[in-house]
């Protein structure tokens, strides 16, 4: 059937011959044939877990992991974006810089935090804190949990694109070790802006994707109702991502998900952070930077002279 579809598409468009209906009919039958509702459902469960309203957020992890945390605010340019929080944390007898997207728990906080969708100020604050960390040799730990950067007129006018690209450049440039952890939703460029790190980790039930399944379904399937299928096709779960080599590690969650036991989840994250930093700090800063570049250089799959390369 797939072959027949391809053949139909190849036919030259002749006046008076309407293949469109035929093509649409076959491609819909193909979708139904290939549909694996069980798999779609399993993937969608992960999407819902990643977005679970009781899931620990960045500040929850910060309070559970670091007894002495000093929040630093503002981008020194325009404002302070509550959708990204950051500051100095006391950690095993030393200091680390913690930065993360922050969602709100109740209605008021959700609005104030803009559902974890940063504006350019948030990314500029993140850059300021990362540069501060670099100056004092403080490792940087980021937590990713956002549906995406905020799509708004004012955010665009203040340079949302440039704020994200410069946040990426800032992370590429750092001499200190960097660890990024996707704790919930890793939504598109707004998430990646904090995730160009030496070690990129994911919690088991988090997701990380180029586009939300809902938007992807609307664009490619022309039907927002196909979000479950889009989620499965996008390969956005932690097990998909480790398989694709897009992340360096996956952290198991407490039974049933991180929302069931915040303390246990924080303990797991704390151990993973310790392991990662121990590994990274054994490497010379110059070599660490080179390894960071090489890691991201390898991202992607393409064919060269007919051979598929990873």
């Amino acid at each position: 059937m797939r072959k027949r579809l391809t053949e139909l598409r190849r036919l030259p468009t002749l006046p008076g011959v309407h293949l469109k209906d035929e093509i649409a009919k076959i491609s819909h039958r193909l979708i139904e044939l290939n549909r694996n509702r069980q798999l779609d459902r399993a993937v969608w469960d992960k999407v819902e877990l990643a977005r679970h309203p009781k899931r620990p957020y960045t500040l929850d992890y910060i309070h559970l992991m670091f007894p002495g945390f000093i929040e630093l605010r503002g981008d020194r340019c325009f404002g302070d974006d509550p959708a990204i929080v950051g500051g100095l944390a006391a950690y095993m007898g030393r200091t680390i810089m913690v930065i993360g997207h922050q969602k709100g728990r109740d209605l008021g906080a959700r609005t104030r935090r803009n559902f974890g969708m940063p504006r350019p100020e948030g990314y500029r604050k993140a850059q300021r804190l990362m540069n501060l960390a670099d100056k004092f040799g403080i490792p940087v730990f980021t937590m990713i949990d956002t549906p995406g950067a905020y799509p708004g007129v004012a955010a665009e006018e203040r340079g949302q694109a440039g704020a994200i690209s410069r946040s990426l450049l800032c992370m590429a440039r750092l001499n200190v070790p960097t660890v990024a952890l996707v704790i919930g939703e890793g939504g598109s460029g707004g998430a990646l802006a904090l995730a160009l790190a030496d070690r990129v980790l994911m919690l088991e039930n988090s997701i990380y994707s180029v586009i939300s399944p809902e938007s992807c379904a609307a664009i490619l399937w022309k039907d927002a109702g196909e979000a479950h299928l889009a989620a499965q096709t996008l390969k956005l779960t932690s097990s998909n991502l480790i398989e694709l080599g897009a992340v360096d590690g996956v952290l198991p969650e407490p039974r049933g998900g991180a929302h069931r036991d915040h303390e246990a989840a924080a303990e797991i994250v704390k151990d993973a952070l310790e392991d990662s930093l121990r590994e990274l700090e054994a490497i010379h800063p110059r070599v660490r930077r080179q390894e960071r570049f090489q890691k991201f250089r390898r991202m992607g799959v393409w064919k060269e002279n007919g051979m598929t390369l990873f």
Binding site: L168, A172, S188, L196, Y208, S209, L234, R297, G300, V301
Partner: peptide, 21 residues
């Protein structure tokens, strides 16, 4: 980004940024 390459297309942003650096 090229949606059909999923996360790998998103990571091209990181890759090209490293190149600029």
């Amino acid at each position: 980004a090229r949606m059909q390459e999923g996360i790998l297309s998103l990571l091209q942003m990181a890759k090209t940024t490293c190149a600029v650096e």
